[in-house]
Write a protein that binds this DNA or RNA. Sequence first.
DNA 1: TTTACAGTTTTGTTGCAACAAAATTATACG
DNA 2: CGTATAATTTTGTTGCAACAAAACTGTAAA
Lengths: 232, 232
Amino acid sequence: MAVHVSELANIDRAAENLGDAAYRQMKERIIRGVYRPGHKLTVRAVAQDLDVSTTPARDAINRLASEAALVYAGPKTVVVPVLDAKALQEITLIRLALEGLAAQQAAEHVVPQDVEALRALQRQINSALDAGQYADALWHNKEFHFAIFRLARLPHLVSMIETLWLRIGPSLHDLYPEFAKERFGVHNHEVAMEALEERDGPGVRAAMENDIRDGYRRLRRACRERATRSAQ
Amino acid sequence: MAVHVSELANIDRAAENLGDAAYRQMKERIIRGVYRPGHKLTVRAVAQDLDVSTTPARDAINRLASEAALVYAGPKTVVVPVLDAKALQEITLIRLALEGLAAQQAAEHVVPQDVEALRALQRQINSALDAGQYADALWHNKEFHFAIFRLARLPHLVSMIETLWLRIGPSLHDLYPEFAKERFGVHNHEVAMEALEERDGPGVRAAMENDIRDGYRRLRRACRERATRSAQ
DNA sequence: TTTACAGTTTTGTTGCAACAAAATTATACG
DNA sequence: CGTATAATTTTGTTGCAACAAAACTGTAAA
């Protein structure tokens, strides 16, 4: 078994076992929006999908469930979570606290070439948006945010933030047409990069908090529209 | 399998399986300081301790490791973590962000009888300190803090804070003689309760942040003394 | 059409054995 | 005595079968 808290270096990482591999693959699928909210996951189905036996599949599902990346809809049914307004609000509050902290700390360690790497990521986001490839845009957006978080050099913090993204990931993808239409985040990202260049911690924090709040407002609106539509 | 994110209500919680029971027992043992930092945990030993087969024992260990309540010292060796100065500092930063948020939000929902319950917990802490029962004092101290956190009505947040306490728990107990000598936290707790009575969110946050910082300074000092002692 | 119920299928859990790899101990050598 | 090496034990992993419980499906009654 390898390192369980991702981003946590310094421990001698051994060869990954099947359970870890299954976990990693499932995590990527969830964050990429392969599974829609409400989708039911069974041990045997996952085992077949990933071509492993039930034990590693069960390991992966259990681990994702314990991180609330999957939730129990019944005693024997794990599903991809469907975020309601209350959960979305709570996760946003936690994101503001943790990602704000990471953003601010990032300014303590940033060097010019980090900002250059961020600009490259931003170009990838823009290209994807131009091409209408919204799933790619969301992926690059995630990369952009985590590139900043990693600058904070706080591995525990980064892995905790990751679990939060895992919880909203499916809903984000479920709504992404509405989401990407408005060229999300571009301005906030520009501000964040400028603040990083000036090593202005509070400035980076403010930009990233703005980005979270903007995303929250769009997600909440989409949630409500979805709710009223299904209520008809 | 029951609810994995503790404090997360609304899901119909089914009968707990052996893996969950093992996880819960191990968690309590860790937070109560039964296992010292550095203690090695094996699947078969845990299985024997808890009188279950290897499967639930493995489940519990894996889950605790994925929460960083246990860490890998080698590819096949999980141990109770030994906090170094850097990890202690990072966890303290995260605690300030999350527990500060929970404390502030607690003021939004508090009612007088909540404060009365807190006063009862504080009396238990004081009694334990008077009697020199430091392990009990630490336990009641934990109850006091989490009684406040739960007032925030943010279950995801509470469970994330719980994982942080799980990470420092063993080191706290390892050092508790030095820790309890100074009647930790009593004043901060009093201030927190007064602020709660006045529904003063920032006041509650400040008191709890103070408590975290005080604890951090003591833990860091004890860590350093321990380090210099072992270096001789 | 909806609801209640019985039968059927699916599903998670649990324990276990075999295996490979790591950790530990014993041994021999410098 | 310390260190490198080999032998031995311990350990995590993996797959699987049996079991109980839940989920599902079809059926019949209101």
